[in-house]
Amino acid sequence: MEIKQTNIGQIQIVELIGRIDAPNNSKIEDFFAKLTENLESNIVVDCNNLDFINSSGLRVFIMSLKKSKAANKQILLCNLQKNIKEVFQYSGFDNLFNINLNKEEALEKIS
């Protein structure tokens, strides 16, 4: 699992590469806990190369969303693969996140 972090203007881009599976869950959880602490910018999470997610990974996204809302900031996901979208849909997470955005659309929505 690799996490790449860049900025476009005031927006933080987080690219997730690989699998959010049990061996990687604590790494992802720690990363997003730190990222959403004292949040001062909006975040776009690029999932183009995210191949797997489990329920613990979903938990990280819901916690991050709660923290970003509390800080009055946005967190958007983009480029979700078909299988990952299904996990979000079956969990009712498609009510919480727009799961159909590409990166350009996400950046446009946020800026």
Binding site: S55, R59, I62, L65, K66, K69, S91, N95, L96
Partner: peptide, 15 residues
Amino acid sequence: KPLEDRNIGGLGIHL
């Protein structure tokens, strides 16, 4: 339910 009312967890066996 909306975000405020969602529990964190409990999804594993459902999936």
